[in-house]
Design a binder for these strands. Structure first.
Lengths: 213, 213
DNA sequence: TAGCGTATGTACGAACTAGTACGTTATTAG
DNA sequence: CTAATAACGTACTAGTTCGTACATACGCTA
């Protein structure tokens, strides 16, 4: 009836546990650095189950990637900044993005890793339809309002702004180690966190305001 | 007297050729994805020579990293923007940084890879003294002049500015593949190159100018 | 409760990969 | 010219790693 360890058979749970561990392993060691045996050992099941559910190391990695992106997208979809005036809304969005990046280092590592592989896995995921990213829609709404006010410049679009915000947030986390080694200042130092967050907000807002250059 | 292929024995050249090939291989495949045999095959020499000159795969990787950083630093050290007024100088520096990143995708990949490994190799290189990076000194000079003018804000220092500039330039190249997959727009599209470059310049300058927020 | 498909465990193998033992040839100092 | 040393090549090994053949147990359904 039960497993020796008191655990029932549970396909969903086994699958999820494998994905959880695999996410950490891939994020920490990269695709080639990850050992399927190492994932199995950290799971309450065996390597056999990894192949039972995911068929191959590669497909496991793709599943990890897909789930990670889906989770991020879910969070983004829950945001609403319509109640704030445009300049404040975009600053708030930048700050939220900043916080999300700091809270998701594993996701950031996975993205870096996938780019090292030239996006050859993420390209296969049609679940990430390029068009309706909630993050972009959010920026679009804010830009629209800001332009209607006459406050925002017209020559940058939502994807441009999203790129600028993401770049700052992503770089700070992703390149933490080399940056610290070279410049002797850890960009993730909690004491400087607020300063960086304000700098990003200032930068994005001042850039968007008409006549600021 | 000569090798069968007409090539003399030449330690420096062999060393350099190994480093050249290894740089490409490590940049393209990551540390764990790189095969020492693959490097050897692309060289006019054999795997034995890699171990003769570099002792191990790891030390070869460290040598690649060290040389790559030294090359970048060399370029930076040759810059001088004293002839431009502060706002123009910082814009010009941003543009030059932008161009360098676009021209050095292998270096960017190596940096990403090293960060995946949490900087454990670059940390050992004391050749990269944290203090006197030419890039930082350059920003420092410009900021100093801009503040003397009363034109630049006082609450961001050279490393902060360098972070903001690098983040934008680095992200655009490093995350090209996932960005394209998700947002359907390649940030390295040559047709949009000037637009991105101007956006970066505008952003940095407007951020630095007093009273711009 | 019988039976069948889903879920799980064990043990193994074929291929790969970093590193080396051993031998050879070129170059140069004296 | 000759000896010594630096530069180079071949063939191999020990250990690792993805993946699987084979065996078994659980639990739902009829």
């Amino acid at each position: 009836m039960h497993q020796p360890d008191g655990r029932r058979r549970d396909a969903d749970r086994t699958r999820r546990e494998i994905l959880d561990v695999a996410t950490q392993e891939f994020a920490n060691r990269g695709y080639d650095g990850t050992r399927v045996d190492a994932i199995a050992e950290r799971t309450r099941t065996t390597k056999r189950m990894i192949y039972y559910y995911f068929s191959s190391k590669r497909q496991l990695y793709v599943a990890v990637l897909e789930r990670s992106y889906a989770q991020i997208r879910e969070v983004e979809a829950g945001l609403n900044l319509d109640h704030l005036p445009p300049a404040e809304a975009i600053r708030r969005l930048a700050e939220i993005t900043f916080d999300h990046h700091e809270a998701s280092p594993d996701f950031i590592r996975l993205v870096s890793i996938e780019n090292i592989h030239r996006g050859k896995h993420i390209g296969q995921l049609e679940s990430l339809a390029a068009l309706n990213s909630p993050a972009i829609q959010l920026v679009e709404q804010i830009l629209k309002r800001g332009r209607a006010d006459g406050a925002f410049r017209e020559d940058v679009d939502a994807i441009d702004v999203h790129l600028a915000i993401s770049a700052y947030c992503f770089f700070r986390i992703a390149n933490r180690y080399t940056f610290t080694a070279i410049f002797g200042r850890d960009p993730v130092d909690p004491d400087r966190r607020d300063h960086y967050r304000r700098q990003l907000g200032d930068m994005i807002v001042s850039h968007l305001l008409v006549g600021s250059r």
